[in-house]
Simulated assay, not measured.
Amino acid sequence: MNVRIVLLLLWLPVQAAAQGFAGLGTETGDFARPDPETVLQFPADHGAHPEFRIEWWYLTANMTGPDGTAYGLQWTLFRSALAPRDGQGWDTPQLWMGHAAVTTPDAHFVAERLARGGIGQAGVRADPFAAWIDDWAMEGPGFDDLRLTASGAEFAYDVGLSATGPLVFHGQQGYSVKSAAGQASHYYSQPFYDLSGTLTLPHGDIPVTGHAWLDREWSSQPLAADQTGWDWFSLSFDSGDKLMGFVLRGDSDFTAGTWIAADGATTALPDGAFTAAPLSRHRVAGRDVPTEWQVRLPDRGVDVTVTALNPDAWMATSVPYWEGPVTVSGSHGGVGYLEMTGYGD
């Protein structure tokens, strides 16, 4: 049997863990639960947490080429566990999945990798930092200075990342509540990377510069049983301020977010402070997906329209979802990224 088929069969019982829309409301069992008293420790917490069911290292970037063309980049490594322990060789219950994508105004390129932990094919090391799956890698001497590489059938990229601001902790010092019932995750970001490097597309190499945002999150039951998906926004305004906000869709929607000032100071946003309402939908992959939004944060005077650079940025992966760069207009100008999960046929 083809090894990719074997890995996919191993992945299917927990395939939705990486994107949070089918199965993430199940009970934690023997897996660890996030604790609001936990103080995140670095560099250790840049690494993996095998006692938790799910985890990801999730980087998105907004870039431009020499002619001003806008591009988006995604690099994601997901870890999902069948049991709350690590292990060596094929005995390990740790499963890994990688997604890479490049978005242009008129094209969207996607690739996926699947791996079993314990055999060296995929993993994360905290210090010096390295996250990899096959020949895709995010690595460097520290979390502030990284090189990012990935490739697919029609694209590749090799870019450098340099942090210009501090880590950002969401919720209560990295304890991020996801529902009125109290489901939560540990969640922090590095939203202050400068980026430069090279995209390789079917028509050749393109030097790019821009900014990147890396999310780190782990949990064992981050969603309530009724929640079916989320709409997640990371917005970088021309002022230097930033906004992370998400809507978790369920019987009653739940929202949360973080206001990030240009100097890195943060303000946690409680349920209801941040709102996002679809303005228009686009038919992609047999689904009607909202690709234009009105986002509001009245306490900061934010009332903006968030528009997809390419409405066809569908991730046709084992767990399908929409992910792509966006532009921001209205009370604030800027760019960002939008992820939408749980949209059915």
Rank of each mutant, 00 (worst) to 15 (best):
V3S: 15
I5N: 14
I5R: 13
L8I: 08
L9H: 13
P13A: 07
V14N: 10
A16Q: 15
A17T: 14
Q19I: 12
F21Y: 15
F21T: 10
F21G: 14
G23F: 04
G25F: 03
E27W: 07
T28R: 15
E37V: 11
T38L: 01
V39D: 03
Q41A: 00
P43G: 01
A44D: 06
R53M: 07
I54Q: 14
E55T: 00
W56I: 01
Y58A: 01
A61W: 04
M63H: 09
T64F: 12
P66C: 12
G68K: 09
T69H: 10
Y71H: 13
G72H: 06
G72S: 05
P84D: 09
G89K: 07
G89N: 08
W90K: 12
D91N: 14
D91C: 10
W96L: 06
G98L: 13
H99V: 12
A100H: 05
V102A: 08
V110H: 10
R116I: 08
G117P: 07
I119F: 09
G120W: 09
G120V: 05
Q121L: 15
A122Y: 06
A126V: 02
P128N: 02
A131K: 01
A131H: 02
W136K: 07
D144C: 05
D145V: 01
S151C: 08
A156I: 03
V159T: 04
V159G: 03
A163K: 03
T164C: 07
V168F: 04
A180G: 11
A181R: 14
G182L: 03
G182E: 05
Q183T: 15
S185T: 00
S185K: 00
S189Y: 02
T200H: 15
P202K: 03
I206C: 08
G210E: 10
H211Y: 12
R216L: 02
R216A: 00
E217R: 01
E217I: 01
S219F: 01
S219W: 01
S220M: 06
A225S: 15
W232Q: 04
D238T: 13
D238K: 07
F246A: 14
G250T: 07
G250N: 07
F254G: 02
T255E: 04
T255Y: 03
W259G: 05
T267R: 10
P270E: 13
P270T: 14
G286Y: 02
D288H: 12
V289Q: 02
P290N: 06
T291K: 04
Q294S: 12
Q294C: 11
R296D: 11
R296Y: 10
V302N: 06
T305P: 08
V306Y: 04
A308F: 09
L309N: 11
W314Q: 00
W314F: 12
A316M: 10
V326K: 12
G334V: 08
Y343N: 11
